[in-house]
């Protein structure tokens, strides 16, 4: 029961963060939202492991934590290298 409540709270938060990813005026808002969804997905995996009583999900959560960082850094490096197509658009 208690795990279900926490899972629902985390899922609602994911929905809010996704709303920011869709609205988010600049590109960095979207990258930030993506990173946050990754962190929250780790929490969801850990909680679901407890809800279903199968702690194997935790191994996937550990892996996802590392991949989340690598993914964010990779995307940011890509945008640092790439020239902005339209500076006014990148600004806001």
């Amino acid at each position: 029961m208690m795990f279900a409540v926490a899972t629902i709270a985390v899922l609602i938060t994911i929905a809010m963060v996704l709303a920011r990813a869709i609205l988010g005026p600049s590109l960095f808002d979207r990258v930030l939202a993506g990173n946050t969804v990754g962190s929250l997905a780790v929490l969801t995996l850990a909680l679901i492991g407890f809800v279903t009583g199968r702690p194997e999900f935790l191994d996937i959560a550990i892996l996802y934590t590392l991949l989340n960082l690598i993914g964010t850094i990779a995307v940011l490096r890509y945008f640092k290298m790439a020239e902005p197509v339209n500076p006014a658009q990148a600004r806001d």
């Binding site: 590109l27 960095f28 990173n35 962190s39 989340n68 964010t72 850094i73 940011l76 500076p87």
Partner: peptide, 22 residues
């Protein structure tokens, strides 16, 4: 792991946003 990686990602994001001219 989250406590070690979260500040790295946040700092990279802030730095990239500043360099992009925002």
């Amino acid at each position: 792991l989250i406590l070690l990686t979260a500040p790295v990602a946040t700092h990279a994001l802030a730095q990239a946003a500043l360099h992009a001219g925002i």
